[in-house]
Write a protein that binds this DNA or RNA. Structure first.
Lengths: 146, 146
DNA sequence: GGCATATAGTTAGTTAAACAACTAATCAAA
DNA sequence: TTTGATTAGTTGTTTAACTAACTATATGCC
């Protein structure tokens, strides 16, 4: 029984993701306090667009680990906020290429600073090598379940 | 700078909790396949009630790390499913004590088995000592942000 | 007793996730 | 070239999270 690492009563927080929920809530509060009118989910889409925009909604699905309806609605809301624009592709008219507006580009620096700040608060007093192990475990978990 | 453990580009999955999302989705699929008509959130409430029922909604808030409106609605839906009952306390009439029905008690064993199964799949190929480190890190993160 | 304050829970409104069913465009193969 | 399958994206429905505003009960203090 090589993998019975969880006895009853220990599995709750692993499944419910208490830690990542707490991180997301803290970051959301920082956004609100800084008058960054963004949800964490919207930020997670912009995060990938800041690295490269002009990608399709399907590529955003893969990058953000969300399904297509979720991305449709997130892009809807980001468009309402005038942070992105849908441009239908000329090569394949099924596809929408998603582009950032200048407004959205301006938000990158401030929001990324708040994200790093949040993670540093979250990881206070955790030795770097343990953080590394934790990251690796979470990556394996993700790969195991895909 | 003792805590700058995250360079840009590494923080995304920590914040978005990709791993715990994947675990929850896998467990939900197992519930559906087993005709357990339960959401993961409903299960997370039952999880605490199986340990002890007859507790207040506020105690459920603390146990499940949710706010009061969330618990109100979860209890609403669990009541519709006839899995719990609200009984207003005689000592303090503001409080609802939440009790399991027999129906709900019957679901404990099967659902907990599926939860353990899910975690074992998630943690396949992860050495037990690394799982331990990961759990400790996530606990510290949670404590740091409370 | 009466008033302020705190606590328990509910309601309303917005955003998002999951799933199923759908449209439209593309591609592949007979 | 037309038919069938695949891919990209949208829409509808249910469940849930978060905030703010609300009701009702309890408590503490004068």
């Amino acid at each position: 029984m090589p993998n019975n690492q969880f006895k009853k009563g220990e599995l709750y927080s692993f499944i419910t993701g208490k830690a990542s929920t707490a991180i997301a809530r803290r970051l959301q509060k920082k956004f609100n306090a800084a008058n960054l009118n963004l949800t964490i989910e919207q930020w997670s889409v912009l995060y990938h667009l800041w690295k490269q925009d002009g990608i399709s909604q399907q590529e955003l699905c893969n990058a953000t680990f969300r399904d297509k309806p979720s991305i449709t609605r997130l892009v809807d809301n980001l468009e309402k906020l005038k942070l992105v624009k849908r441009v239908s592709s000329k090569e394949d008219r099924r596809m929408n290429m998603i582009f950032l507006t200048n407004e959205a580009r301006k938000m990158e620096e401030a929001s990324m600073e708040l994200a790093e700040e949040t993670l540093n608060e979250a990881l206070e007093k955790v030795p770097a090598d343990q953080v590394e192990v934790c990251k690796q475990v979470l990556q394996i978990v993700y790969d195991n379940l895909r």
